[in-house]
C-alpha cells in the first residue's frame, strides 16, 4: 500500500502549502519529464510569482484537449500549454478558454494575432535522414525515389496530422495523387513520434517525419553530426505550439502572469535545448550554438487554424484511401 502513503504525503504537502496560491498547468507528458522544460520552467516561475506552479502531464496535445473537454468548467487547470494550431479551432469552439492580454514581438515566420492562444515555441516538420545521403528536394521527387520513410498516423499523432496538412497545403487538390505516389515509399505508419523515430534509428527506414530541429539534439546533446533534415522546395509545414488560459480559472491574474512569463526570456531560453523547438520569441542571448547549423526552409507553410479544421477530415479520407490500396 506504498502508493497510498505517497498519495497521503502529496495531499498533506498540499495542505501545508495552502496559503501560497497554486497555479495548475496541464501540458503534454514530455514537457514535464525530468529532462524536459518542466522542472526548469517551474523553478524559474516560482522564483518570481510567490506561488506554487503545478505542471500536470497528459500524453500529447490531442489528449490534452480531450482531457480539458472531459473536465469542462470544473477543471482544476488554470492554463493549458501544448496545443497546436491544428487543435485551436476545436479548442476555441468549446468556449472553455479565455482571451489573453499578452503582447510580444514574436519571431515566427507567420503573423500571429490570435486573441485566445499564445505561442510558446514552433518548428518546421521535415524528414530527418543520415547526413551522408542526398535527400529528395520535394514530395514528388521523394515519391519517384526509392527512399523508404516512416511516418506517424494522423489519427493518433500530432506530427502525423501535420504531414497530412503539409501535403494538403502544398498540393491542394493534387494531394491524393501525391499520397498515391508516396505509398510505396512508406515502410510503415506508427502510433506516435517515438515509435517512428525509434524505427528510423534502428535503420528500418531512410527518412522519418520529424522536425528540422531534430539534428540539433543529436549535435548538441550527443555530439553526433550525422543527422540532417531535408528542406523541401514546396515549403516545410510549421507547427506552432500554444497555451491559453481557461475561462473558469480561479487564478486569472496568476494565469495572465504565467502567459506573460511564457514569452519572456526566462522561459524562452529554456525551450531550445529541452523541448528541441524554436522559441516563439528569440531570447536576448540568441539561440544556442548548433542551432545555426540547422536546415532553413525557404518557405514556411501553415494553414490557419480554421483552414486546418476544415481541411482535416477530407485530407484524412484521402490519406486513408491512398495508403489502404
Amino acid at each position: 500500500m506504498k502508493y497510498l502513503f505517497i498519495a497521503a504525503g502529496i495531499l498533506s504537502a498540499q495542505a501545508v502549502a495552502a496559503e501560497t496560491p497554486e497555479l495548475t498547468v496541464y501540458t503534454y507528458d514530455s514537457f514535464v519529464a525530468d529532462w524536459g522544460p518542466g522542472p526548469q520552467v517551474e523553478a524559474a516561475f516560482e522564483a518570481t510569482c510567490g506561488c506554487d506552479l503545478k505542471l500536470i502531464g497528459v500524453e500529447d496535445g490531442a489528449a490534452l484537449l480531450a482531457r480539458v473537454r472531459l473536465e469542462g468548467v470544473r477543471s482544476e487547470a488554470d492554463v493549458v500549454l501544448g496545443l497546436d494550431t491544428n487543435l485551436t479551432t476545436a479548442a476555441a469552439a468549446t468556449g472553455l478558454f479565455a482571451e489573453h492580454s499578452v503582447e510580444a514581438e514574436y519571431d515566427l515566420p507567420v503573423a500571429w494575432d490570435d486573441p485566445v492562444f499564445v505561442p510558446f515555441d514552433w518548428g518546421y516538420f521535415a524528414f530527418v535522414h543520415n547526413a551522408d545521403v542526398t535527400a529528395p528536394a520535394n514530395f514528388r521527387a521523394l515519391a519517384e525515389s526509392d527512399a523508404k520513410i516512416v511516418i506517424q498516423d494522423p489519427r493518433s499523432s500530432t506530427p502525423g496530422l501535420g504531414l497530412l496538412l503539409w501535403v494538403k497545403a502544398a498540393y491542394g487538390e493534387d494531394a491524393p495523387e501525391v499520397w498515391e505516389g508516396l505509398s510505396d515509399n512508406v515502410v510503415t505508419v506508427t502510433k506516435g513520434w517515438s515509435e517512428a523515430y525509434g524505427l528510423f534509428l534502428e535503420g528500418e527506414a531512410d527518412m522519418v517525419l520529424s522536425y528540422t530541429t531534430s539534428p540539433a539534439y543529436h549535435l548538441i546533446a550527443e555530439d553526433d553530426p550525422t543527422k540532417a533534415a531535408a528542406v523541401f522546395d514546396e515549403g516545410n509545414y510549421m507547427q506552432v505550439e500554444v497555451a491559453a488560459k481557461l475561462a473558469a480559472t480561479d487564478q486569472p491574474e496568476l494565469a495572465d502572469q504565467f502567459l506573460a512569463f511564457m514569452v519572456s526570456d526566462a522561459f524562452q531560453s529554456i525551450i531550445p535545448t529541452t523541448n528541441w523547438m524554436y522559441p516563439a520569441v528569440t531570447p536576448a542571448g540568441g539561440l544556442p550554438d548548433g542551432f545555426d547549423t540547422l536546415a532553413q526552409p525557404g518557405k514556411a507553410l501553415l494553414l490557419t487554424a480554421d483552414e486546418a479544421a476544415l481541411a482535416r477530415d477530407a485530407a484524412l479520407d484521402e490519406w486513408l484511401t491512398a495508403l489502404s490500396q
Binding site: 502508493y3 505517497i6 502529496i10 507528458d29 514530455s30 514535464v32 519529464a33 529532462w35 524536459g36 518542466g38 505542471l55 500536470i56 502531464g57 497528459v58 500524453e59 489528449a63 482531457r67 506516435g192 513520434w193 517515438s194 515509435e195 523515430y197 525509434g198 534509428l201 531534430s214 539534439y217 543529436h218 546533446a221 528541441w276
Partner: peptide
Amino acid sequence: IALFADPEVATLPLQVFRLMGSYQT
C-alpha cells in the same frame, strides 16, 4: 498511467516512453 500521469510518480514503462519521446533512445 499516461491518462492520469503525475510528474512526481511515473512508472518505469512511462519513464521508458518519456525517454524515447525525448530522443534518448
